[in-house]
């Protein structure tokens, strides 16, 4: 892991977050957030519900304007971009090309009333693909990549199991080869065995495609499996951050210690 960390330091960060804050009410939201995310890095944001981690994810992924601070993103198309100072048009282009967003509830990230093929094909069509045969071929390939039988291409997501819906959501995001993925509790609400399969697949895809990921989870087991680095949040503040193993095996902050021990007790 340390060799990889060293390697990250040599390139420019993909995302630079500076003094970011967003509060709905005192104690509700997140504040004083500072970090860098490097290409190929998986950052886990952990904490209990209400700790502000989902608010933070929304602010990072350009879906919720912060009260203060900056998010600077190194875009393939636009170069260095200050997300909340740039044109909304650019943010929206990022959303459908360089970024992916995987929601906790698949129905928030999928079009439930159109087929799996159309769900995957939408981003291709959004970036100008107009050949039905090609769209279908790519959709089929991606279904297979996420281990869904390609004969289900014309089925609607509502006919899929929870785990399949989540995998479809991932395929829908990855079809345009994004470089940064935001995930909000991607395994929440799934059975343990289904979770394991999904995590395994995610880990494979992340490594294979060299994706950078920011993943929000309250499940430390998920964080340990996927994340290189962790940020622990409590009441809107980051109380501890570091390499995943370090944070989980040798927690410094009392709150992290409590989190880790409660996992052990379960």
């Amino acid at each position: 892991m340390s060799a990889q960390t060293a390697q990250w330091q040599d390139v420019a960060p993909l995302l630079q977050v500076r003094e970011l804050s967003k509060f709905y009410a005192p104690g509700k939201g997140c504040g004083d957030i500072d970090f860098d995310l490097y290409p190929g890095e998986v950052l886990g944001i952990v904490g209990e519900s209400g700790s502000g981690k989902s608010t933070l994810l929304n602010v990072l992924s350009a879906r919720l304007a912060p009260d203060a601070g900056q998010v600077i993103y190194q875009s393939e198309q636009f170069g260095e971009l200050d997300l909340y100072a740039c044109d909304e048009a650019q943010r929206r282009v990022l959303m459908r090309s360089e970024w992916g967003i995987v929601h906790q509830h698949a129905r928030d990230g999928l079009r439930m009333n159109v087929s799996a093929g159309a769900n995957i094909g939408e981003r291709l069509m959004a970036v100008g693909e107009r050949h039905y045969g090609n769209i279908r071929e790519r959709a089929q390939a991606w279904l297979e990549a996420v281990e869904i039988d390609s004969s289900r291409i014309d089925d609607r997501p509502s006919q899929f199991s929870g785990g399949m819906q989540q995998r479809l959501q991932i395929a829908r995001n990855l079809v345009t080869h994004p470089q940064l993925i935001f995930m909000d509790e991607p395994t929440g609400g799934l059975d343990v065995s289904v979770q394991a399969k999904l995590l395994d697949m995610l880990r494979g895809l992340v490594a294979e495609l060299g994706l950078s990921v920011i993943i929000v989870t309250h499940d430390l087991a998920v964080a340990r499996l996927l994340a290189h680095r962790l940020m622990v949040m409590r009441r809107g503040q980051v109380v501890e951050s570091g390499l995943t193993d370090q944070v989980l095996d040798d927690p410094q902050h009392p709150y992290t210690q409590l989190l880790v021990s409660s996992i052990l007790q379960n």
Binding site: V93, S115, A118
Partner: peptide
Amino acid sequence: HALREYGAMQVKLYEDVAR
């Protein structure tokens, strides 16, 4: 319209052809 984000309309046509 401003950003020519017309992919969603194409999705509807895709569904027709698929069905």
